[in-house]
């Protein structure tokens, strides 16, 4: 990817949710551009549409209006299978609630996106997964069943999993919501360092002012709109 293109950009995104009377205009024209090497925070009150925006940027939902690019590719026309492929290759998604696959161990959870990507041997995949788990401080729990991990540990496995395929864009919905201060700082430092070092792009939703302040950009959302974007870099 050349540096003149944003890693992720959207323009005038709109989204309606619900049917008929309960129909809500959740996003009312959101525009953003995230360049390689930048960490962006989205803050705003509960219900303002932060998660909805992330689902659209994460190609899990389609906007009702507006355009979206990943790198130089406009994604509106992509088929479902191609969207899946982009999610697998380009995006890492960290959910507000840690979602691991129950029947798999920590390391196997990290390997799952790699398997879909293909091209590596089992040994290579496990080695890379072990490195990622080490980076989030879980090297000693790699072979534990995900059922036997605490909430914070599961969250960290989910973060390692989001990085599994070395994505260009990382989208995180309150990634540190379940973590204590020490782990929260550690995970954020890891992500931020990775973004700056490897020129990736990170967009994270957070309620934690300390984390927001440490980002390059802070976007404040209210009622489906970005009302303020401030650079902190």
């Amino acid at each position: 990817m050349d540096d003149t293109a944003s890693s992720l950009a959207c323009h005038g995104l709109e989204k309606y949710l619900g049917e008929d009377e309960s129909r809500v205009h959740v996003l009312r024209g959101v525009s953003l551009a995230i360049n390689p090497g930048e960490v962006h925070a989205v803050v705003g009150p509960s219900g303002c549409g932060k998660s909805s925006l992330l689902y659209i940027l994460g190609l899990l939902d389609r906007p009702d209006a507006g355009t979206l690019w990943i790198g130089r590719e406009e994604i509106a026309t992509l088929s479902d299978d191609l969207l899946s492929a982009r999610r697998n290759e380009e995006l890492g998604f960290i959910f507000q609630f840690h979602f691991l696959l129950q029947d798999f161990t920590a390391i196997e959870n990290v390997v799952i996106p790699m398997r879909r990507l293909g091209g590596s041997t089992d040994g290579e995949m496990r080695e890379r997964a072990a490195g990622l788990l080490d980076a989030v401080g879980l090297s000693d729990k790699a072979d534990r069943s995900s059922r036997a991990l605490s909430g914070g540990e599961q969250q960290r496995v989910a973060i390692a999993r989001a990085l599994a395929n070395d994505p260009a864009v990382i989208l995180a919905d309150e990634p540190t919501g379940n973590l204590d201060t020490a782990n929260s700082a550690r995970v954020f430092a890891l992500l931020k360092d990775l973004v700056h070092r490897e020129r990736k792009a990170l967009l994270l939703v957070t309620h934690n002012p300390a984390i927001a302040q440490a980002c390059d950009w802070i976007h404040t959302m209210r009622d489906g709109l970005i009302v303020d974007s401030a650079w902190h870099g």
Binding site: S84, F99, L100, Q102
Partner: peptide
């Protein structure tokens, strides 16, 4: 149902 959603978010296709 949740695990299916996660798999999809990680790039698993409908066919998968």
């Amino acid at each position: 149902i949740r695990e299916i959603a996660i798999l999809r978010s990680m790039g698993y296709r409908r066919l998968d």
